[in-house]
Amino acid sequence: MSDPSTNDPKIRIRGLTKAFGTKTVLDGIDLDVAAGTSMVVIGGSGSGKSVLLKCILGLIEPDAGSIEIDGRDVLRLPRQEREQVNARIGMLFQAGALFDSLTVWENVAFGLLAQHKAARAEARQRAGAILAQVGLDPSVGDLSPAELSGGMQKRVGLARAIAAQPDILFFDEPTTGLDPIMGAVIDGLIVDCVKRLGSTAIAITHDMASATRIGDRAAMLFRGKLVWQGPAADLLHSGNEMVDQFTHGRRDGPIQMELRR
């Protein structure tokens, strides 16, 4: 399933395996993401998409396999070097994961302050500018995250993810729970941000419209394996039965909903 066009990928995953108890969530994932491109991973709810991202970030320890970023196996790096790699990754979490004890601008500037890239006053200015990049008025910075609508929270989460100008960006279901118009707006912002930073991105989603808008390439996760990879533009006519069933939302096909596990 390797792709000839990606000889020197930014992210190279081989044989990634993770089980929780007896339940195998990832079962030998091989995935390459070329530098400066966006990969969308589609798959049903509970298929392990978030676990995949958390493995790459080191938030979950995989049982087997390797994850290389810029050719270095991050699973075997000492803690400090690992943190340096992570500092170059930004992540938009599925439910936002904004710090509710802090204001919006403190959320956005959190990474800058943590990395001592800016003093507090300057960080506040920068946060305002970053909020503007995601279409929010800098005055939003003084609100608390709980005062924001779902769409605004997503924007703040995006602002926080891009604040330290990471060269890798992860998006976990960026449009889930938003109305279609807001979904399209967020997708547009994501594409803008990724382009502006020149980042390599992995987005996971089960929203087909979103997948084709964000991704250069796409892969489908099913029962712990990547059952298909190809250009994101081919998602709707991939010729793969499982992808077809998923993208067209058909009840009948090779994928049967598991109602028990």
């Binding site: 500092a87 930004g90 992540m91 979490f93 599925q94 439910a95 990474g111 926080r160």
Partner: peptide
Amino acid sequence: AELGTMRVTDQIDALGTLSTN
């Protein structure tokens, strides 16, 4: 309660992605 809420809403994971242990 506070740390538990931060855990289940991914805020603790988010700290790790923002250069904060």
